[in-house]
Amino acid sequence: MSGFFENYGFLIVTIVQQALLGLSIYFPLMAGQLSLASIGFYSLGGYVAAVMGTHPALAPLREALGFWMFPLEWLGALVLSVILGIAVGYPALRLRGIYLALATVAFVQVVNVAVLNMPIAGGAVGIFGIPQAFESRLDYIWFFGPLFLLALFLVWRIGNMGRGLAFFAVREDELAAGAMGVAVTGNKVTAFVLGCALAGVTGAMSAPFLNTWNARQGTFDASVTCLAYVLIGGSRSIWGPLCGAALLVSLPELLRPLKDSRMILNGIVLVAACVYLPQGIMGGLAALRARLSGRGGAA
């Protein structure tokens, strides 16, 4: 059993890490906003942690704080993400649907180019030799795990209080929500910024986890993959992002024995999942449960 965790520890933690990115898209989706900005904040958060963890000027601070440097990095990423999230959110959230998604894609690309041109970010090589919090990759679950639980709790809590009703009202009908006195823009920006903050902190935790950080972390492909976690997992369930990430992250590893053709099969499974589980894994499970209980009742 120890061999299993030795081999798949990294993979397990990666699933939780990616599920966090999925959740960061889930927040704005709760208010009906499709944002693909997460990966940009993830990238920036990673850079914050990477710079704070390696910059020579901060060496005394690191020595003084020891392990507490990591929470400080998260805080740095959080503050930056919230400020930038508000700055981007207010103008961008006037857009709807696909237009908002495209504006956030544009934002991520501009961030990428800007980062590549910032000397402090280390150019194309990026930043490496980032101080490690733990020896084993599996131990990083102590970073991502609590954050994931916290994010889940937030989603659940929001869903069960006034704020959640406001989010859902905005999702279902902006005009009507506005007419009923719901602060449409405020709620949209709040949902958006929550997602940005979560992605930023996830990035800050990921830089030590990967030991290196570079501009390739924030690609367009990664943005779409995060969206895929939510959709494949099931966009109406809070467990959806985790299920989606679990499937999509582990799939290439499960297919390893196929060698050269594994990525072809990976694509086939992706298409099949879309076709046969149009409500996502959680939606499929719910339908299955309904059918089973329906049958049970009839018998």
């Binding site: 895929a228 990976n266 694509g267 992706l270």
Partner: peptide, 12 residues
């Protein structure tokens, strides 16, 4: 939205 993912799968 799922069509984004399924078309990405076909691309893969």
């Amino acid at each position: 939205l799922l069509a984004l993912v399924s078309s990405l799968g076909v691309a893969l």
